[in-house]
C-alpha cells in the first residue's frame, strides 16, 4: 500500500503540506489544512463533500489487531459535512454525515460513527460500539447524551477558509473530473 493515489474532486481545497498516504479520494468542497494527516493503510479512504479537516488532525484507516491477517481491503467511507478539529485522532472504520470530532479527541478503530455525532474535546472512545445518531460525548468522564439536532454546519467558517487558505498555501490541483 505504499503507492499513493490521491484523487481530488474539483472544488476541494487540499493544502500541499498535508500528509496523505495511500489511496484517498477527496470530495468536492472539502478543505484539508496543512499538516493534517490522512493515512490509508488498510484500504482506500473516500472522503465526502464539504468536510473540514483541520491542522494536526489524524484520520487513519487501520485494521484492528485481530483482523490484520485477513485478506480484506475494507474501504473507509467518510460522509459529508464532517468536521475534524485540531489534533483529533480518528481511526473509525465508518463515518456518516455531519459529525464533529472536537480537538484532541480519540476515536478507536472499533467505533462506528453514524450521523450527527459529536465527540467532545479530549474524549477518548475506544470500546467497540456503534454511536447512535446525534450522540454527544463530552466531559472528563466521556458522558454520553443524545442531542436534539445535528450540530450546526460550519458553512461560514468554510467559506472564509476557502478564500484565505489559497492566499498563503500551495494547493493541490484537483485531478479528477466529476
Amino acid at each position: 500500500m505504499s503507492r499513493n493515489s490521491i484523487k481530488i474532486l474539483p472544488g476541494a481545497l487540499v493544502c500541499e503540506e498535508s500528509k496523505l498516504r495511500g489511496d484517498i479520494t477527496i470530495g468536492a468542497g472539502t478543505i484539508i489544512h496543512p499538516s493534517a494527516t490522512i493515512l490509508a493503510e488498510a484500504g482506500p479512504i473516500i472522503i465526502g463533500d464539504c468536510c473540514l479537516i483541520e491542522e494536526q488532525a489524524k484520520i487513519i484507516h487501520r485494521l484492528p489487531f485481530d483482523e490484520q491477517d485477513t485478506e480484506k481491503t475494507p474501504v473507509l467511507i467518510i460522509g459529508a459535512h464532517n468536521v475534524f478539529e485540531v489534533d483529533c485522532h480518528v481511526e473509525s472504520p465508518k463515518i456518516g454525515n455531519c459529525n464533529v470530532f472536537e480537538s484532541k479527541c480519540f476515536v478507536g478503530n472499533k467505533v462506528t460513527v453514524t450521523n450527527g455525532c459529536t465527540v467532545g474535546a479530549g474524549c477518548k472512545v475506544t470500546e467497540e460500539q456503534i454511536l447512535k445518531e446525534n450522540v454527544i460525548i463530552f466531559g472528563e468522564k466521556c458522558q454520553m447524551r443524545e442531542g436534539l439536532d445535528r450540530p450546526g454546519l460550519q458553512t461560514l467558517q468554510m467559506e472564509t477558509l476557502s478564500k484565505v487558505l489559497p492566499n498563503y498555501h500551495h494547493i493541490r490541483k484537483p485531478n479528477k473530473k466529476n
Binding site: 459529536t118 463530552f138 466531559g139 458522558q143 447524551r145 442531542g147 436534539l148 450540530p151
Partner: peptide, 9 residues
C-alpha cells in the same frame, strides 16, 4: 458550548 445542551432540548 461544551456539551451542546440547549434550552430547545
Amino acid at each position: 458550548l461544551y456539551c451542546r445542551w440547549s434550552s430547545r432540548d
